[in-house]
């Protein structure tokens, strides 16, 4: 009898505690938007940087035209130490919001009911003369570029629950040793809640 009473008590306790601790299903959203004109966030974006070369010629095609490359390794293209050029795509700072991101090439929108971590990794398809790390990124508000890698790099750690926007600029280094051709960087952004 005591056992039955105890069991009933514990069953009631289970119900009570179960009802009290039952959390909502965690909410997790990750969408991105590139420089295409639609300003629509999706889970799969394409960025076409157009035609570039190690002389820094302004691209005449692609999503961002008219951007010149700046010498790398020397102040002049004619310097023997010059390795190539760096094309900076939308390096200006500020002016981005949830409706548009005119000064960043990529906007990342995150919604999470829990703390989260955002990371990115990359792969490159093309001739081996071009390195994966010739593509760089930086936060829109920062000045220092970070090369992409083929292993995950943490962009945001301990992200605060809720909705957040992150804005990134890209840089592409084109070197004299690069073989001409089409190159594809596949970037994977991963959001993990915990």
């Amino acid at each position: 009898m005591e056992f039955k009473q105890g069991r009933l008590f514990f069953l009631a306790l289970i119900f009570f505690l179960g009802a009290s601790i039952h959390p909502q299903e965690p909410s997790l959203t990750l969408v991105i938007d590139g420089p295409d004109p639609d300003n629509d966030y999706t889970s799969m974006e394409a960025i076409h940087m157009g035609e570039v070369d190690c002389w820094g010629s302004p691209g005449a095609s692609g999503d961002l035209v008219g951007i010149y490359g700046k010498p790398v390794g020397a102040s002049s293209l004619y310097d023997k130490a010059c390795r190539g050029v760096l094309y900076e795509f939308l390096s200006a700072t500020g002016g981005n919001n949830e409706f548009s991101h005119p000064t960043s090439i990529l906007a990342v929108y995150v919604v999470s009911s829990l703390k989260y971590e955002l990371s990115v990794m990359a792969q490159l398809n093309g001739d081996a003369s071009v390195g994966l790390d010739q593509l760089f990124y930086k936060e829109d508000s920062q000045t220092e570029y970070i090369p992409f890698t083929n292993h995950p790099q943490t962009l945001v750690s301990r992200g605060t629950p809720g909705a957040s926007y992150f804005f990134y600029d890209f840089g592409l280094q084109v070197e004299f040793g690069d073989k001409p051709g089409h190159y594809f960087w596949n970037l994977t952004y991963t959001l993990t809640s915990y």
Binding site: I47, S57, F170, L187, T190
Partner: peptide
């Protein structure tokens, strides 16, 4: 829980 999004970035490198 994990979510992923992907970007394909294309650059056409010309010779000089």
């Amino acid at each position: 829980e994990t979510k992923s999004s992907a970007v394909t970035l294309q650059a056409d490198i010309n010779d000089v």
